[in-house]
Write a protein that binds this DNA or RNA. Structure first.
Lengths: 244, 244
DNA sequence: TTTGGCTTGTTATGTTTATCACAAAATTGC
DNA sequence: GCAATTTTGTGATAAACATAACAAGCCAAA
């Protein structure tokens, strides 16, 4: 027979699947043990449970194991990125089909699109998809493929093929480096083919970065500046002269 | 100019993107205001923030706004589902490529695979993908397509094409209904083509359900019983007689 | 510049949570 | 069935958190 303790752990994680948060007191009465015992159970299984001031949560909700230097990237220039998104969102209209690149830069773009707009959003990053699916009035299209933790995104041949069936009005592309002469580059090679194909198919593309990226050049070059209608940063929008 | 308050809210949700949990004290010093102010900010934006005994979390982590009757389905028979997964996981070996179906049934399958096994997992549901990407030693392949909130999964022609490039050893398929004569069915039509193609390509397929599903029949029929090597429930494994 | 409304900080008080040590109860091995 | 070990409960104490009332500060319009 399985020890009482093991059964409690299973019961508790079961209850959490359903409730997402459980107060210590609830958990105790649910499991028919004292609060102290629940405390001990939770403390002994940090892999399964998180504990926040009297509340038990699934460990998954907390684990700062966010893939990607995402965790690291998210803090730096977070405010600038949000401002850049606010500018970029002005280019989105009702009924549009947009493409949202991976990374942290464009994560808040969707927050600046009025709830009333019904749009279709194409993405290939897990964190972006998650946000999009929470929004109503939004069709979400995901490009599949192999997962790359470095950018929390998927890519592969069939993801690229999916793009052939889509009509994208406006693509929002981000970059880890923007050199005003050479163009836009990113740190991970697997992202480049996706970005390039999107840029080639979309009616118009915008390059969205916080200004700290300007002047930098990363390993994977993916587009010259004149591939974009404009460069958008927290400071606003800069038209790109199409005269070579 | 934007009110100071509005900027704080944006900063706070930005910090949460990165940290997932923020202690009241940290938040206060981060925003350069008193704890009391942070309390008030959080209380005024229940849509964005959750608050658990001194800790601020993104509302999304708590909000029972889990898409799908997922929320509803998750509680019922949760223990049975986990037990079924424990049985099913015995069929996974190091180096395998497995397919994990959508729904809540197979969510805990991955928990029963030893950390030391390096595997490749193919999926098409957002909640499954999320769990898989948290695991080390795991290649994750996602089938893309249009998002269906009803099952938190993606499907479409190009997702199906992706399957052609994959060699799947073992497929774990779940169902909303299992009729021992007619076979397996699910509630959403978009899932059926994916399940069918996977079953046709995988070396072997297992049907994994909690026993409450047995005897039920849902709208979208997708496979006869003899398409599966065995039926796995919380009570264990039942070989399926291949004699018609 | 001054008024009035709104925002923020402070303080005080009560409640909840955290931790520890020890006792009681249950399990296990023999 | 008995002793050793583990698990669980209890109560005391300290720390952290919650809440409300009021004072001070900020901002905008007159």
């Amino acid at each position: 027979m399985v020890s009482r303790k093991a059964k409690r752990i299973v019961d508790l994680s079961g209850a959490l699947l359903e409730r997402r948060v459980l107060h210590l007191k609830e958990a105790a009465s649910l499991l028919n043990v004292s609060e102290m015992t629940v405390r001990r159970d939770v403390a002994e299984h940090p892999d399964q449970f998180g504990y926040l001031g009297g509340h038990i949560v699934p460990a998954a909700d907390l684990d700062a194991d966010v893939p990607y230097e995402l965790a690291r990237a998210a803090d730096s220039h977070a405010a600038a990125k949000r401002e850049a998104c606010a500018h970029a969102a002005k280019h989105i209209g009702p009924g549009d089909t947009i493409f949202i690149d991976c990374g942290t830069t464009l994560l808040s773009l969707i927050d600046y699109v009025p709830e009333s707009y019904s749009i279709t959003a194409v993405c290939y990053a897990l964190n972006v998809a998650e946000k999009l699916t929470r929004r109503s009035n939004t069709n979400v299209v995901m490009l599949g493929g192999l997962y790359y933790p470095s950018s929390a995104s998927f890519s592969g041949a069939s993801g690229l093929e999916t793009l052939d069936h889509l009509g994208i009005n406006t693509a929002f592309i981000s970059a880890a480096g923007v050199d005003l002469n050479r163009g836009a580059s990113c740190a991970h090679f697997h992202e480049a083919p996706v970005k390039q194909k999107v840029i080639s198919l979309a009616q118009r593309s915008f390059l969205v970065v916080d200004s700290s990226k300007i002047g930098k050049l990363k390993a994977a070059f993916f587009a010259p500046m004149d591939a974009f209608s404009s460069l958008i940063t927290e400071e606003g929008e800069t038209d790109i002269a199409h005269a070579g």
